[in-house]
Lab assay of single mutants.
Amino acid sequence: MFYPNSPQTSPQLTQIPYGQQYAMMQRQIQQPYHPFATTEPQARLYPYHYQGPIQQEQGGFITQQSTAASPQYVQMRVTPVDQSIMSGYPNQTANGSSSSSFNYNIHPQQQQQQQQQQQQLRHHAMPVGSVPLQDDRYRKQLIVNYLAPDVTSTDLHELFSRFGELDGARIIYDKQTNMSKGYGFVYFCHAEDAKEAVERMSGYEFHGKWLKVGYSTNPLNIVPSNSSPYVHAGSRGAAG
């Protein structure tokens, strides 16, 4: 039997160049792979992502010199942007860049009308829970959420009447099932009393439920100042 490094198959040491006398086997001759043993700084910083320098080929596509990437890492192929796409944008300079302001050559009167329309939209648009300043009635009506099913309009009136005089209180019921929808409205005579009720009743436990109280901004629920107070009856038909 002959071994790869046996004296019968191995040459004389004098015939082997210096430095390879003890590297006779194939696994010894093959050098191990060192990912950080390279002179390129990109490979030292990113050993798993770097795959060699990027070269520009004919046709405008950018390719990489090395083989496919590892399945664990996804390499994105980048193509140059066609400058003709950006030619339609206004205020574009000769080098292809555009300024931040756009001039669509709008007539001054049209621009003024658009600004007025935007101001009107901001004036009428009102986020949930906010209180408008032009109508004091919005500051007097509250919406009470997360009410228990057994709470009546009379219970709601008695709960909030300790903060001040009320114009009314009612629970909203479903017309088909005649069941409470879980929320109601309270109408105060003074805005200061309503503000105190919002601050003190939010998070209050009532009939096993934690109440959420806020201003009601729905104009359909506003009680006119010259109208008669609501009837605080315990029956659902009268309260709904």
Rank of each mutant, 00 (worst) to 15 (best):
Y3V: 06
P4H: 12
N5L: 04
S6Y: 06
Q8A: 09
Q8E: 05
T9G: 06
P11L: 04
Q12I: 04
T14H: 07
Q15H: 12
Q15A: 08
Y18T: 13
Y18W: 04
Q20K: 15
Q20V: 02
Q21R: 15
A23W: 03
Q26Y: 02
Q26T: 03
R27E: 03
Q28A: 05
P32A: 04
Y33I: 09
Y33E: 07
P35Q: 10
F36V: 15
F36D: 14
T39A: 07
T39L: 07
E40Q: 06
Q42L: 06
R44K: 15
L45E: 15
H49T: 09
G52Y: 10
I54F: 10
Q55I: 04
E57F: 05
I62P: 14
I62K: 12
T63H: 09
T63C: 05
Q64F: 02
S66L: 06
T67H: 11
A69Q: 07
Q72V: 02
Y73S: 15
V74Y: 14
Q75T: 06
M76F: 10
M76C: 10
M76D: 13
R77T: 03
T79P: 12
P80M: 13
P80Q: 13
V81G: 12
I85Y: 09
M86F: 05
Y89R: 15
Y89G: 11
Y89Q: 12
P90K: 13
N91R: 13
N91V: 08
T93P: 09
N95S: 06
F102D: 05
N103T: 10
N103E: 06
H107G: 09
P108W: 13
Q109K: 13
Q111A: 05
Q113S: 07
Q113C: 09
Q117L: 12
L121W: 08
H124V: 06
A125P: 05
P127R: 13
P127K: 10
G129T: 09
S130P: 11
P132Q: 05
P132H: 13
P132T: 07
L133A: 08
Y138W: 10
R139K: 09
V144G: 01
Y146E: 01
Y146T: 01
Y146F: 07
Y146L: 01
P149V: 07
P149Q: 07
P149I: 10
V151L: 04
V151S: 00
T152W: 02
S153P: 02
H157E: 04
L159N: 00
L159F: 01
S161H: 10
F163K: 01
G164W: 04
G164T: 00
L166D: 00
D167R: 01
G168L: 00
A169L: 01
A169D: 01
A169Q: 10
I171Q: 01
Y173T: 08
Y173C: 13
D174C: 14
K175C: 08
K175I: 04
N178C: 13
S180D: 01
Y183E: 02
G184Y: 00
F188N: 02
F188K: 00
F188T: 00
H190M: 10
A191E: 13
E192W: 15
D193Q: 13
D193E: 11
A194R: 01
E196M: 15
E196Y: 15
A197D: 02
V198K: 10
E199Y: 15
R200C: 10
R200D: 03
R200N: 04
S202F: 15
S202E: 07
G203E: 02
E205C: 06
F206M: 08
H207I: 01
G208Y: 15
K209M: 02
L211Y: 00
L211C: 00
G214M: 02
P219Y: 00
L220T: 04
L220K: 03
P224M: 05
S227Y: 13
S228A: 06
S228D: 07
V231I: 14
V231Q: 14
V231M: 09
S235K: 05
G237A: 12
A238I: 14
